[in-house]
Design a protein around this nucleic acid. Structure first.
Length: 325
DNA sequence: AGCCAGGTAATCC
DNA sequence: GGATTACATGGC
């Protein structure tokens, strides 16, 4: 597939205004997140692609003096409106304006949260995906293994997304709902190997071609999202907790169910209802944030997609560029 | 071979 | 309503 070269267009200074400590490493890089090719992280820098309106952007992120510095690389006409959209998107994606004090106060009173808090304090939810993109991620996680989720993600992004190069790194970029709307369910099944999920994706593309993330502000999202075919309680909760950044919500699945059962009940597994009830008792209004801390702490020692060594970037680039369509 | 994966919708009683 | 069951695919 063609490699799109992006040129430097802007540098944004994004001060962290939220109250409390800010953990840049674990806000940008989550040890539990599987490899998508959409982002890469070293200890010093992160790279990530964004689709914003008609723009394809590559972003390199660094942090100093309580400010996130974002170097923006683009493929075309970069307008003032793009700067505004990207600024808002980056601030929201990494929770730069969100306080951590309320959660930290609750967390300090719960013995099971002591270690996760010590290791991760100042970490915010990260969700560079918009509602459409996070819905696709959650769809690909449904009832399958991470290995197959990774394969399906690679298939979709290779066949229907973009491959870009900027600031010395090669990354994949998402397709937009409009771009995906031209693809049939049969292609998703036969070519992208999505299995029974194939018929959900056209419904996702159609819904989000007509509803932007901005349109959805203020709705009861967990209910609204479930009107989309293929979106149930889990996918809707992932969308609300991640893209809508509702700190009280978390999607429960067989994976985090076991992690949370162990952390709060000291048992290998438990039913979703008592887990949800107990999480809400322990962390009222912040159960989603608490779940995030438990899950990321669980993966800290063996990350799903480890940090990149700066010497490994050439190999990273070759691996992505060699993927055939 | 058979079971299970970071679920959901359709179809039962 | 709540309790099954089919649904694609791949790894162990």
């Amino acid at each position: 597939m063609t490699l799109l070269h992006l040129d430097h267009a802007d540098t944004l200074q994004l001060p962290v205004t939220g109250d409390g400590p800010f953990n840049i490493l674990h806000t940008l890089w989550k040890p539990s997140h599987y490899a998508t090719g959409l982002e890469a992280h070293t200890r010093e820098s992160s790279w990530r692609t964004f689709r914003v309106g008609d723009l394809t952007a590559g972003v390199r992120l660094r942090y100093e003096d309580r400010t996130v510095i974002a170097d923006i690389y683009t493929d075309g006409d970069y307008k003032p409106a793009h700067r505004e959209q990207l600024t808002a998107r980056l601030r929201a994606s990494y929770g730069l304006d969100e306080d951590t004090a309320a959660f930290t106060a609750l967390a300090e009173k719960v013995p099971a949260m002591r270690e996760p808090l010590a290791a991760l304090v100042g970490m915010r939810q990260s969700c560079p995906e918009d509602h459409f993109e996070i819905a696709v991620i959650a769809l690909l996680l449904q009832n399958t293994t991470i290995s197959r989720t990774t394969t399906m993600t690679r298939n979709l992004l290779t066949h229907h997304g973009k491959l870009v190069h900027f600031d010395g790194i090669t990354l994949r970029a998402w397709f937009t709902p409009a771009e995906l709307a031209t693809v049939t369910a049969e292609t998703f099944k036969e070519k992208d190997k999505l299995g029974y999920r194939a018929k959900s994706l056209p419904a996702f593309a159609a819904f989000f071609a007509n509803h932007t993330s901005e349109d959805l502000q203020g709705e009861n999202l967990v209910e609204v999202f479930q009107e989309i075919k293929g979106v149930g309680p889990y996918t809707a909760a992932v969308m609300a907790s991640h893209a809508s950044r509702d700190p009280s919500v978390f999607g429960i699945d067989v994976w985090n169910r076991k992690i949370l059962a162990r952390r709060i009940f000291d048992v290998p597994d438990a039913d979703p209802e008592p887990i949800t009830r107990r999480m809400n008792e322990l962390f009222p209004g912040h159960a989603g944030t608490a779940a995030l801390y438990f899950v990321e702490h669980d993966h800290l020692d063996s990350p799903v997609a480890p940090l990149l060594d700066p010497d490994g970037i050439d190999a990273w680039n070759s691996a992505l560029e060699d993927t055939s369509p």
